[in-house]
Structure formats: structure tokens, C-alpha cells
Design a protein around this nucleic acid. Structure first.
Lengths: 349, 349
DNA sequence: CTCGCATCTGACAACGTTGTCCAGGCTCTA
DNA sequence: TAGAGCCTGGACAACGTTGTCAGATGCGAG
């Protein structure tokens, strides 16, 4: 570790690659430290002449305020953290963007990280962000136990969960109406004459997956249809597995005439499977995706408004920080059925 | 601003919502401040018994080290900044993800922001990140003058530009071979018999757009085809404008029989236009996109590896930080032509 | 039983900034 | 011209951590 040294040019040598500090600026401008601080922060009480001298010194030295020190002194970092599952997933792009917009409107920066659906990594990230003293945290949970956040929340870190509820702690959460959306989507298929309807979804330990499954079951029950075990696939949603599941339920005796796909990755794979078959089964997918309307037929989906999820969550976060908010709440945003053709195909049996 | 107060429970009241500090932990464990620091950082020279006492105090108080203070003392923040155009653009998802992976591998956090293609906002963001003392910056430039970063770079902020080169400063840059990719894509159309080929691209002030245009011209010239002014559209790439441009060049006397689309947004719009017409023109697009293979016909594209762009840039950044790197360099990554049908349609004239 | 050495521990300063508070100079009024 | 009050500027401490260095403690050897 290099020592602090005084250099020929009068700058304080330090570990930031010899960045000038306010002290250096003050020395060069021939004023006191606090006066520089005042100029930098636009505080009143500096004569125009002094201000000009200070500004010249700042420009000449290329000074930039060290926000780490500022944070240490002031206590607020004006930054919030976002933990999501995978930045590369198109569902999270608009969400993340919406959170950023709100943060920006409140003068805050966004720090984000991906949990890769790994609870341990989620925790590690969340705590790292807390150590940075982010003012708040928007979390798309990967794990189902968030008690590790309790001390942080008590210490004043605003926290909002999105897309899935927090586990074992009482916290704000913003969700889509997964149950209602799935129920409506399946009911839509039933209304078009289907009775043997398949469901391909994620592992039920994931809250959204469980809710969508519940919606499927509810719609079937409402219509008085009893569900066969082999119409359901509840597991990992890698393409191979989904493909196998789809092919199985579409073949054999008593094949399904329609499929409800539990998320956009599943939907895309099912579209591929269906495209290979002569006899088209109907399809409704949860989550919209780009180009869904350009496919033949267009894909009917239950769309959630991911950017509204992000916006709502972020706004709630800042209201927590304002002190406007007290009790944690659970907010559910409605979904929207978008009909494009694939969900309106009649049963072909 | 609340004052520092001493509370009944012995914690130092402060602006972080009364977070315990090392001092509090030390007091509770009955040891010195530095000993706590040693335990927290896993430094040697602490007897197991002392360590246990300290650890108990940490757990009891819910202490978490304040990294702002740590940064101030140590000089490195272990975080890097990423400035991109739009988090919601699917092109940037994998790029951002790749940068994050590399950062994570180096124990660094990623802070990111969107410039929304606005040079002023880019500058504002970049300087805000520098004020946070990020160790490095990965920038997808919106502006074309980056001299504002010179003091920062001199001060030791590692900087790498991606996707487009930096303006008016000498810095590392990682690009796709936009020129070569476009030339190959257009040559592919020519090889399939087309001679009247349209080009719809972004404003030439954007480097990638200019390069792709240059590739288009080069391929045409190589084939001895002279380009008509009305085959080219070089402007904003909002859907309406692209639609109008495409319709114009596909109609009238001497219509184009093929279109080269300058980016994925353009491609998607052109696909829509072509889908409405009986006589299909050929299409090759720059940038791959999800489901391109599922459309009828599949869309032939010049694909760039956005995650390789991100990875390469981030790795270079950390090599700058290692001190392994000296002179700025320009790295060009190859593109790949993916044939799916739309680019192999014969001319229909 | 004492000395010497190794091992642990803690006091203190420093990182760069901002809040507090006081000093000095100025203007304005009586 | 003297006094009151205001405005500007600067000295100093504090934020929570880590590096330095010296002191304390314990143990073994002579």
C-alpha cells in the first residue's frame, strides 16, 4: 500500500491514483476547506469572486468530490439495490428499467446483481449491498427465507419484494395476479371448447409457478373437469424437458387438445413443438414476448406488466424512505389476456 | 439531521438508523476496536476465545461493516460501472450479464445506468459513478466526445468502451466487425441473385450505423452494382419511419427485391411489412433476435455475440486494473451469418 | 525466580467530506 | 464616528473503518 506523499505539484498523493481533494483545491484557490465544500455543493454564503477562484482551481486540478467520504458523513448513499434473477431474461429488462427510472427521478443510482436463482447468492448479494449502505433494496427473491434481512430492515434499509413474496418475514411485496391470470387463460381455452388441457410449469416451490398451477386447477374445477395427472408437468423448464413433456401430453390415448404454458420460456419451446406437428393444438402462455403476434398463428398470452411491477415496487420503496409508509402491504397487479389466434383454435379431436 | 446520541442500550445512535459500529461491538465484547476489525476481516492474531466473544457480539447486535468507511480508508471500492443505452433492449441483456459475471469473478459489484442514447445523460452518469469512485467504467457511448473522462482516466479509473468507439480520446474499445458483417450479409443476398438491395439503418452519426452502411456500399461496389439513392434509408429507426421507408423502396418502379436491415429493431419492423405482402422480398438483418427461426420464413441474420462483447470488455477492464495493460487497443470481434430462409429467397421480379 | 521472546491486543492517526461555531470585516444607522 | 448586526470564511471535530506501532501478557529457558 503506497504511502501518502506530498508531491512537487502540490497535490496530496493518495491511493486513488493521486486524485486531488478539497484540501488541494482550497490550497490552490487560497481559501479554506469549507469554502470549497460550499462551492461544490452550491451552498450560499460565498461571494461570486471567491466562487470563481474556487471553480478555476477545481477545473485546473480536475477535482471530483469523493462520494464515499460524503456518504460516510451524511448517512445516505442515494443509491438503491436491485437483485433479480437474470439480467439476460427479457422479462426483467423492462422491470429493471422501470426501477432505474424511478430511482433516477429520486436522484438515486441503481446497483444491481443477479442471483441466478440461487438463494445463497441472493443473500450474499443483498448483504453486500447493505454493507455498501444502499438506502433500499428491491428484491426478486430466489430463496424462501429472508430472515437474514431482518437486522437490515430494522436498521432502516427500505425493502420491497417483487414478483414473488418474501419468505418468513413481513415485508412489502408487489406481485402479478398469477392465480387470476392463469385461471382466466385456462378458462379462455375452456370457453373455446377444450376439455383436455395440459399445464407445463415450473417447480411449485417457486411461488409464481404454484399460483399459476392453482389458477389452472381452479379453472378446470369451475368447469367441472377433472384433471389427469399426465396433463401436468411441474419441474425444471429447460427446453429438453419441456419438449418431452409437451410431446408426451400431445401423444398417446386421450391427448390434450390445448396447452397452458406457465412462463415465456416454456411458451417458446411449446411453440416450437407445435410448429412441428400437422394438427395444431391450442396454446395460451403466461407472460408476453416480443414477436408473439408475428408467429403463425399469433400466440395468445396472459401478459403481466413487468414495467409496472418495477415502477410500483420502486415507488413504494421511496415512500418507505420518505417515511410516508408504515405497515408492509401486498400489492397485486392485474394481468391481461391478449388474444392472437393460438388460444382460439378449436379442439381437434 | 438527527444528532449523534448515546442510547440506553449502549449503541451509538447515528444517521444509519442506529446501526451498530465496530466501536459498539468492541464495547460489548469487551475488546479493542482493532480486534473487532481483525475478526471481521479474518486477519490473523486473534485467539479463538476472543474471536468467539467478538463474533457473539456481532451476531447479537446485528453488526455489518460499513463499506463506505472501508472504501474511504482503502481506496478501492471493488465496484465497476456500466453505462448502456437501454436496459430493456434485449441486445444489452446478455452483454450486461456477461459484464456482471466477470465483475463477480473479480469480487466486484456492478453499478449500472442507462443513458437513453442521450450524451448529456451519459456524461452525468459516468461522472456520478466516478464520484462514487468506481474502480472502472464500461461504457456504451451515446455521445461522441468523451474528453470529459480524461481527468478520471488520468486519476486511475479503468475505462473500456464497447459497441462503439470513444470520441476524441484514446481508450480501449471492443467492437463487433460491423463493416465486415454488413458486407457479408449483403454479399449473401447478391450471391442469391439480388441486385436491387435496400438498406435501412440508423443515423450515420452512430458509429455502428455508419460502419454497416459502409459494408453495404462495399458489397455492392464489389459486385459492380451502383446504388440508387432511394434504396437507402438513414435516419431514426422508429417503427413508423422504417415502415414508410420499407414500403417506399418495395413499391414504385424499380423496386428492391431484398432488404438489408441495419439493426434488430429495424429487422422486426421490416418483417412485419413483408408479412403483409404477397410477394416476399428477401431479408437479412443485422443482430440476431429470439424466435427469428420460428417466423415464416426464418430470418437470416448477421449475428454479433453480445455476451462476448461484454465479457471481453470487462476482462480488459480488470487487466487494466491489474496493471497488466498499457496501451489502449481496439478489438474487433467477428460476426456470424446465420441462414434461416429469408436471406435465401430468390429475387421475385 | 527472573529474563527474553513471541504472541495478542489496543491506542491513535488517517482517509475526504460536511456540520458547527466563531472570528473578522463590512455596512448601515444613530 | 461609534455601535449593532450581517455576511463571509475558516478551524475543528466527527462520520466508521484500517494501518501502524507500542504495550501487555504468557510461556519457556536459564
Amino acid at each position: 500500500m503506497p504511502q501518502t506523499t506530498r508531491r512537487a505539484d502540490g497535490l496530496t498523493g493518495n491511493r486513488y491514483g493521486n486524485r486531488p481533494t478539497m484540501k488541494d483545491v482550497a490550497a490552490r484557490a487560497g481559501v479554506g476547506l469549507k469554502t470549497v465544500s460550499r462551492v461544490v455543493n452550491g451552498e450560499p454564503g460565498v461571494t461570486p469572486d471567491t466562487e470563481r477562484r474556487v471553480q478555476e482551481a477545481i477545473d485546473a486540478l480536475g477535482f471530483r468530490r469523493n462520494d464515499s467520504a460524503r456518504v460516510l458523513r451524511k448517512g445516505r448513499t442515494a443509491s438503491i439495490g436491485l437483485i433479480l434473477e437474470d439480467l439476460a431474461d427479457p422479462f426483467y429488462g423492462p422491470l429493471s428499467r422501470a426501477v432505474e427510472e424511478v430511482a433516477r427521478a429520486h436522484g438515486a443510482l441503481l446497483i444491481n446483481g443477479s442471483s441466478a436463482e440461487d438463494p445463497e447468492r441472493e443473500q450474499e448479494l443483498a448483504l453486500a449491498l447493505c454493507a455498501r449502505r444502499v438506502d433500499g433494496l428491491v428484491v426478486i427473491p430466489a430463496g424462501d427465507d429472508h430472515r437474514y434481512l431482518e437486522p437490515e430492515i430494522r436498521a432502516g434499509v427500505a425493502t420491497v419484494f417483487v414478483d414473488r413474496p418474501a419468505g418468513r418475514i413481513d415485508a412489502d411485496v408487489v406481485l402479478s395476479d398469477n392465480f387470476g391470470g392463469a385461471r382466466d387463460g385456462v378458462a379462455h381455452l375452456i370457453a373455446h371448447g377444450h376439455r383436455r388441457i395440459g399445464f407445463i410449469g415450473d417447480m411449485p416451490r417457486i411461488h409464481t409457478a404454484a399460483e399459476r398451477l392453482r389458477g389452472y386447477r381452479a379453472a378446470m374445477e369451475d368447469a367441472g373437469i377433472s384433471v389427469a395427472e399426465r396433463w401436468m408437468s411441474l419441474g425444471a423448464t429447460d427446453p429438453e424437458r419441456v419438449r418431452r413433456a409437451a410431446e408426451e401430453m400431445l401423444a398417446g390415448p386421450d391427448p390434450v387438445t390445448a396447452v397452458f404454458a406457465g412462463n415465456n420460456r416454456v411458451t417458446v419451446t411449446v411453440v416450437r413443438v407445435l410448429a412441428e406437428r400437422a394438427r395444431r393444438a391450442a396454446l395460451v402462455g403466461f407472460d408476453d414476448f416480443e414477436l408473439a403476434d408475428l408467429l403463425q398463428p399469433g400466440v395468445t398470452v396472459v401478459a403481466q406488466d413487468s414495467s409496472a411491477l418495477g415502477r410500483t415496487a420502486a415507488e413504494r420503496l421511496f415512500r418507505q424512505l420518505d417515511g410516508t409508509l408504515v405497515a408492509p402491504e401486498r400489492i397485486e397487479l392485474p394481468t391481461r389476456l391478449i388474444t392472437r389466434g393460438s388460444g382460439e383454435l378449436p379442439p381437434a379431436d
